[in-house]
Design a protein around this nucleic acid. Structure first.
Lengths: 193, 193
DNA sequence: GTAATTTCTTGCCAAATGGCAAGTATTTAC
DNA sequence: GTAAATACTTGCCATTTGGCAAGAAATTAC
């Protein structure tokens, strides 16, 4: 595992002096998960925050017909958390599942709180992390309202081509809000052009 | 205008002693907008944060065909902000338009920063505000992926029946990710049951 | 390496949603 | 109060997406 990747990711969220980012990166602990392991289970509390260094994770829940729905796909580097569950220390309603072997950095809720209280820059960092994640989610929401399924597919393909090499299409389809059958047809249609 | 409403709303986001919430409520200034006025314009920076006391606001942008798309509908009490534009002080890509006469409470970016630096509880409040808004957006996202258009309509009807009395259906339809024609048919279908 | 499992594609048809245009209802402007 | 503008509904038909099932392709387990 490579703590410099973590440090660089921290700086990408909030630019700061190297010694600061290095110190904050020091506060995380490395952890590895195997494929198919669950990082977080529904009805449990998200007690640790995670930063993904390498690998792929999805979150999923169930619809009215008890079918799995993939709600998010995480590709490194990024935070992997249910923010509501983590910051309010209340149960989550989703499952977080590793789709590949995963390397992560983790920090306990208590330690995060301590850092918030102790280091002003860490607070700024935390705030920017939330704002960035809010903004990403907002953009995804806009896509759901503005774009066709085909355009959502094309955007994901453009921004995260790596996901298509590492995550089964059925999960990607669900994440895009369509069925795997439809995604297969959209791909066929695009390929024929 | 009624500052107690603001104070109560602050407490609903993060429970705190009355004197604290009263003090924070004091930091906001009242402001009123007429119907159709723009609170925030695309390409401008979101320089003030707003809390809506009464009235209805929508945010909108444009799709590839230059058609307006309603991205959010705000009903009191709630924060009305482009968080990315506000916290990063960078231009927004959306327009925020009053759909009725609106009463709001406002605080400048500089004052928010000062309060963050000065009052630990204000920081906590700001964090919870972000987490709450993230969570609401996340739930809306889940609805887009999990629910049919009809179910999204029914949920909105259940959780915010007041919106249907105050916001034109064409904006609601767009917000739900469908056309006004489809919404009209869904309503007809439901009424016939 | 082979069998079993999972994933992906495709054909058939159904259901949901959209586009357009006309007509009705409601709201706004003066 | 009346005319104009806006919002909403509806019919007709097209397009998109879904459901199911069968088969092909790829991956996994042993």
């Amino acid at each position: 595992m490579n703590r410099e990747i973590l440090q660089k990711y921290i700086t990408s969220i909030l630019p700061m002096p190297t010694d600061k980012s290095a110190f904050f990166a020091e506060q995380f602990e490395p952890i590895k998960f195997s494929k198919d392991e669950l990082l977080l289970k529904e009805n449990k509390i998200n007690k640790d925050t995670f930063v993904l260094e390498s690998g792929y994770i999805r979150s999923f829940t169930f619809n009215q017909n008890d079918e799995e729905v993939t709600t998010n796909i995480f590709s490194a580097p990024c935070f992997v958390n249910d923010f509501l569950s983590f910051f309010k220390q209340q149960p989550t309603s989703e499952n977080y599942q590793c789709l590949t072997h995963c390397k992560l950095w983790t920090m306990s809720y208590e330690k995060v709180q301590t850092c918030f209280h102790t280091y002003p820059e860490f607070r700024e960092f935390g705030r920017m992390m939330l704002v960035t994640n809010y903004s990403n989610l907002h953009d995804r929401m806009l896509g759901m309202v503005k774009d066709t399924a085909e355009n959502r597919y094309l955007k994901l393909m453009k921004n995260h081509p790596d996901i298509f090499q590492n995550v089964p299409l059925k999960f990607i389809a669900s994440y895009l809000g369509i069925t795997d059958t439809s995604l297969s047809r959209i791909r066929k249609e695009i390929a024929s052009k």
